[in-house]
């Protein structure tokens, strides 16, 4: 997938901006983070009989204004109401060499740009496994999401250096199904990020 070069980058931060219409996007299949990779015995026991990570697919697009990397993630919303947990999404980068399917592990982490509905901005995280995350403060990450026509569109705007690895993955949390931590649907493969 090519990172589109767009001038006047400010509007790219807006998930509904018309600039995104001309940017190539790739649809990727998602799969649940395996139960046996979940980090605590409580989660493995409590979720043994519950399905999660069933969001089937998401689409990814990337653009830059030469200053920042913008990643736009879209997926279909599960409209069941849930007042406790919120829909969330992440762009995942292989910095640290970790595996995508488990969102890294103890030795090899992945870098995560995280957005959650109802909370302002984005969170830059280092993930050492499903839900095993640390916040990286002062990362200069921005994020905004918009629910339109039954689909979420979320845009992250962060340091261009994140594209250096040339790959990005996607993780989706369905808040309607109490998904959080490592209970996510993750893209099966990395998507290539090519400088235009």
């Amino acid at each position: 997938m090519k990172i589109a070069k767009i001038s006047g980058g400010a509007s790219l931060a807006d998930p509904t901006a018309s600039a995104w219409a001309s940017v190539e996007s790739v649809t990727v299949p998602l799969q649940p983070v395996p139960l046996d990779a979940q980090p605590t015995s409580y989660i493995r026991e409590a979720w043994a009989g519950r399905s999660y990570g069933k969001t089937a697919q998401a689409s990814v697009a990337a653009a830059t204004d030469g200053q920042k990397l913008y990643v736009r993630l879209s997926w279909k919303d599960d409209e069941r109401p849930n007042k406790e947990f919120q829909d969330a999404v992440a762009a995942v980068f292989p910095d640290g060499g970790g595996a995508l399917g488990t969102l890294g592990d103890a030795e090899k982490p992945v870098a995560v740009w995280f957005w959650e509905n109802g909370r302002s901005g984005g969170n830059s995280l280092t993930s050492h496994g499903p839900g095993v995350v640390r916040k990286d403060p002062g990362s200069g990450l921005a994020a905004a999401g918009e629910l339109a026509g039954g689909s979420w569109n979320v845009v992250f705007g962060g340091p261009l250096a994140a594209a250096r690895s040339g790959r990005v993955g996607v993780a989706v949390w369905n808040g309607s199904n109490d998904e959080r931590g490592g209970l996510a649907a993750v893209s099966r493969d990395w998507v290539s990020l090519e400088q235009a």
Binding site: Y42, A46, E84, G131, V133, R134, K135, G181
Partner: peptide
């Protein structure tokens, strides 16, 4: 609280 991500597995457990 700086480490808590608000996942609430503790509340369930």
């Amino acid at each position: 609280e700086d480490v808590c991500m608000g996942d609430r597995f503790c509340m369930e457990a």
